[in-house]
């Protein structure tokens, strides 16, 4: 739909809707940051103000960083997310290339399996994976946090769709130029699919950075715990949660993701829009 065909009233209405839904998404974040700056007394005061009367940021944030080993958790997050993403790309890209560009018996069947894999929620697999990890002696290791996510059906699907939009002639030219099939994946297909790679990376990092369910099952040692566990430290059913440091902690955990997303936003949108120009 072209912008020019809509009148000013329609444009106004559209912006109103966009602003409202944008605010709906944004307000919890703003509130989180706002609370992380306030002393306990102000948090529960009736009335509404974004900025605190008495700045309490230093106290909240230093508590957030010291009450639990949050820096350690965040380092774990970086290690685990990095390893998961590298493995996912290393496995998904060749698989997607085969599904998109090679002709072999059973290709459609395999692709159907990938689609079925997309439908299964990870929680369903938690128990079998736990037993498997136990039998392999991997419980309470980094491997237990990483291996279950090494293959991503979503990644295979996304890359396959993108690779399919790359003309066959490019693959043919690469073969004539002397590239092996794997070299075609790494030197030609993946660089051309950069927007899809970035979009996928953001999905992958966000979901595994924020994942609490599987780490709580798979690891026990504190030095292996992921970032969200830092937030848990301030949640106390009996004494009531300590909201100031809790919000500070949540802000710290989310901040890297927000920064990464803002940096990659352009490619992210392009990657989901799909296609090579």
């Amino acid at each position: 739909m072209s912008l020019r065909r809509l009148g000013p009233v329609a444009a106004l209405a559209r912006h109103a809707v966009l602003l409202a839904s944008g605010a709906l998404m944004l307000i919890p974040f703003v509130w989180m940051v706002s609370l992380s700056l306030k002393p306990p007394g102000e948090i529960f005061r009736a009335g509404f103000s974004l900025l605190p009367e008495q700045w309490y940021a230093v106290e909240n944030y230093s508590r957030a960083l010291t009450a639990s080993p949050l820096p350690r958790y965040m380092l774990n997050g970086v290690l685990v997310c990095g390893a998961i993403l590298s493995l996912q790309i290393a496995i998904c890209a060749p698989a997607a290339y085969a599904l998109a560009k090679l002709r072999f018996f059973g290709r459609e069947g395999l692709f159907t399996l990938v689609l079925i894999g997309l439908l299964i929620p990870h929680e369903v697999l938690a128990l079998p994976l736990f037993i498997l990890a136990y039998k392999l002696g991997l419980l309470d290791t980094y491997a237990a946090l990483i291996m279950p996510f090494a293959v991503s059906p979503f990644g295979i699907f996304l890359f396959r769709q993108f690779f399919k939009s790359i003309p066959d002639d490019i693959v043919h030219a690469a073969r004539l130029d002397g590239l092996s099939e794997l070299a075609i994946v790494w030197r030609v297909m993946l660089p051309m699919a950069m927007p899809a790679v970035i979009a996928f990376s953001i999905f992958s990092i966000v979901s595994h950075w924020n994942d609490l369910f599987w780490p709580l099952i798979a690891v026990r040692s504190e030095q292996l715990m992921p970032p969200p566990l830092g937030i848990m430290a301030f949640k106390n059913e009996e004494a009531g949660s300590d909201y100031g440091p809790l919000m500070a902690c949540a802000t710290l955990v989310v901040a890297p993701l927000v920064v990464a997303f803002l940096a990659a936003q352009r490619w992210f949108v392009e990657g989901l829009g799909g296609g090579v120009k």
Binding site: D169, I170, H172, A173, R175, L176, D177, G178, M192
Partner: peptide, 30 residues
């Protein structure tokens, strides 16, 4: 023999250049 072993080169209708590489890299790749 595989395509690269046949000592042939091909120019495609769509040119099939690698869009992420410079002209120099495109020509140098083979």
């Amino acid at each position: 023999l595989r395509p690269k072993q046949r000592d042939i080169a091909m120019v495609f209708q769509s040119y099939a250049l690698y869009p992420h590489m410079s002209v120099a890299d495109n020509i140098a790749l083979p």
